[in-house]
Write a protein that binds this DNA or RNA. Structure first.
Length: 603
RNA sequence: GGGGACGUAGCUCAAUUGGUUAGAGUACCGGACUGUCGAUCCGGUGGUUGCGGGUUCGAGUCCCGUCGUCCUCGCCA
């Protein structure tokens, strides 16, 4: 080793020892006769002192040090003179009086400095990721991520799970997200698909008798990005045989309790609360409700039906819903213009027809441009239903059920943040269960799998498969943390006949099913045990435990919103020879100009 | 594919709403300084205002297009 200690470990117990440290020059303060360097590595910072006793040569050398130079310094650990102790630094009790200095490497003037106070623009951080990753914040997050996966592996190991790797080169499945495809050279005209999840492989592992499987698996989905979504992401994936839904939830409950104990220093009360999908949609308008605050959706359908106000009455008469939320004490926070913004928001983002609102005045009367369309008693009953108090702002959406869900969910989320209705450090865990088996496919009007086509219906709903699939509930469950879907899973179908029935319902004919996952249908006929599992979004979990709202900050090398890597320039053009070997040509009108013959420097 | 925000010195930002020579902090370069830790003090370099058009006597500012980053709807079993 080129060093005897790290930059984070020296303290007054080391005084008098000769040590050698290696690291990066964080800052240098030159006082002519004496010069200080804060030396940084991922363990911390230590102050180096160059003075007359270092010798003219070493002092002169030190004067040439600049930000991010990599140096090796040897000297004695000394207590800092009285009055110069730095309480902000764990190593602030001591300093190293340097006797020998080696510049291991110099550095260009860095475009971003790891210790600078203002965070540089994200494009710059991504382009110079190696500099960004030197920041303490990033190092802290990646270390948190490491500790979390360590705990996960230990936890599942103790429960008898085995870690099995599954292929990255697989075959495309018909449903779900868009696949990333990899052309085969050996089989011209065919392509592999990168896994959206190891779903089928882990089911095969159950059939093979490995009754407790886990993996921290990379998954790929070629869909548009969000603050909490990357095209390449990591799942904590697991599967168990001979279990029911409660067994899976209990295992994850235990894991969450362990993580919370380790990183939040408290006991998590188990079992985690459960809510049905229907209840979540009714109370919060979303299947991943943020339970850190109230402001639940309130149904006003019966009152709206009595109203003269046409917008309300016709919504109910045409089978829609009239629901609202009460933003307690927010009437003063939202001016007419502010409410207009909220209206535009629900119209543009959720296709709501409009937003009705009332401000609750002193004395409890409801004030609004639409108030004249209601008689006084009805207004009073609305106020009562919504538990309105002076200063409250009532926001009401009258529309189709789905629209009221989306719009009010959006409003609740937005107002929750704007009104700071929750503690940013709080962690709230819950389960949402009893998802519908199927949803109506917007494109062809047929049924589509709500979760995935291998999901088992609830035992009491199996008979509904034929008669009313829309009311058939699945043995599916989502883990929800602070309003984020942190993971989801199902009990799988282990009966080949039932599996084929579900495929038929989904409009996947026998031929297609056989071609796409005949191997699973085959395997189900060779003694498939009952099994089920779950996958947790690791990046999201890290984000949540780190108290962040951006998944990119929890990933060492993330992609931009347009799915590029600003550091490497990926994706990029490839050599013409590579394309020839794969039998690929690009049409000129579809990226032909990028399909050039050589890799292009995109910087 | 739709909606929105942003793009000015290496970096973080400003520029009195269209006005004459585009500023500040920091970084960088030079000088001073023996106890600093956001060191301080003095001096200096640094700009195709993302790019391309247009309107105007005059554009960082207005308009159109384009590129990039972010937020969001659709999308994400």
């Amino acid at each position: 080793m080129l060093r005897t200690h790290t930059c984070g470990e020296l303290n007054d117990k080391h005084v008098g020892q000769e040590v050698t440290l290696c690291g990066w020059v964080d800052t240098a303060r030159d006082h002519s006769g004496v010069l200080f360097v804060d030396l940084r590595d991922r363990y911390g910072r230590t102050q180096l002192v160059f003075g007359p006793e270092s010798g003219q040569a070493v002092l002169g050398q030190a004067k040439s040090l600049r930000s991010e130079y990599v140096i090796q310094a040897t000297g004695k650990v000394a207590p800092r003179p009285e009055g110069t102790v730095n309480a902000k630094l764990p190593t602030g009790q001591i300093e190293v009086r340097v006797e020998r200095l080696t510049v291991l490497n110099s550095s260009l003037t860095p475009p971003l400095q790891p210790s600078q106070k203002e965070l540089p623009g994200e494009d710059l951080r991504l382009k110079y990721r190696y500099l960004d990753l030197r920041r303490a914040e990033m190092q802290k997050t990646l270390f948190l991520r490491h500790r979390m996966t360590k705990i996960m592996r230990d936890y599942f190991d103790q429960l008898g799970f085995i870690d099995v790797e599954t292929p990255v080169l697989g075959r495309s499945t018909p449903e779900g997200a868009r696949d990333y495809l990899v052309p085969s050279r050996v089989q011209p005209g065919t392509l592999y698909a990168l896994p959206q999840s190891p779903q089928l492989y882990k089911q095969i592992m159950m059939i093979a008798g490995y009754d407790r499987y886990m993996q921290i698996a990379r998954c790929f989905r070629d869909e548009d990005l969000r603050a909490d979504r990357q095209p390449e992401f990591t799942q904590l994936d697991l599967e168990m045989a001979f279990v029911d839904l409660d067994d899976i939830l209990r295992v994850i409950d235990g894991l969450m309790a362990r993580l919370v104990k380790e990183f939040c220093g408290r006991e998590l009360k188990l079992p985690l609360p459960r809510m049905t999908y229907d209840e979540a949609m009714e109370r919060f308008g979303h299947d991943a409700p943020d339970l850190r605050f109230g402001m639940e959706l309130i149904d006003l359908g019966d009152l709206a039906a009595e109203a003269e106000f046409r917008v309300f009455r016709s919504a109910v008469e045409s089978g829609g819903r009239v629901r609202g939320i009460n933003a307690k004490g927010a009437a003063g926070r939202y001016s007419r213009k502010g409410i207009d913004e909220l209206t535009t928001y629900v119209q543009q983002d959720f296709a709501a027809k409009g937003l009705a609102w009332f401000k609750v005045e002193e004395g409890g009367t409801l004030a609004s441009p639409i108030a004249k369309n209601f008689d006084a008693t009805l207004l009073e009953r609305i106020a009562q239903r919504m538990e309105a108090e002076p200063g409250d702002l009532l926001l009401i959406v009258a529309d189709e059920f789905e629209v009221t869900c989306k719009a009010l969910y959006g409003l609740r989320k937005r107002l929750g943040a704007e009104l700071k209705l929750y503690d940013l450090k709080e962690m709230n865990f819950s389960w949402v269960v009893e998802f519908p088996m199927f949803a109506v496919d917007e494109e062809d009007g047929g049924w589509t799998a709500m979760h995935h086509p291998f999901t088992t219906p609830r035992a009491e709903d199996v008979e509904r498969l034929d008669s009313e699939p829309g009311r058939c509930r699945a043995q599916a469950y989502d883990l929800v943390v602070n309003g984020y879907e942190a993971g989801g899973g199902t009990i799988r179908i282990h009966d080949q006949k039932l599996q084929q029935k579900v495929f038929r319902l989904l409009g996947i004919d026998a031929e297609t099913a056989a071609a796409r996952f005949g191997f699973l249908l085959d395997a189900l006929q060779y003694g498939a045990p009952p099994h089920g599992g779950i996958a947790l979004g690791l990046d999201r979990l890290v984000m949540l435990f780190a108290g962040m709202t951006n998944i990119r900050d929890c990933i060492a090398f993330p992609k931009t919103q347009r799915a590029t890597d600003l550091m490497t320039g990926a994706p990029g053009a490839v050599d013409a020879k590579q394309l020839r070997e794969l039998g690929i040509t690009f049409r000129r009108d579809e990226g032909g100009e990028r399909g050039g013959c050589t890799c292009r420097d995109r910087s």
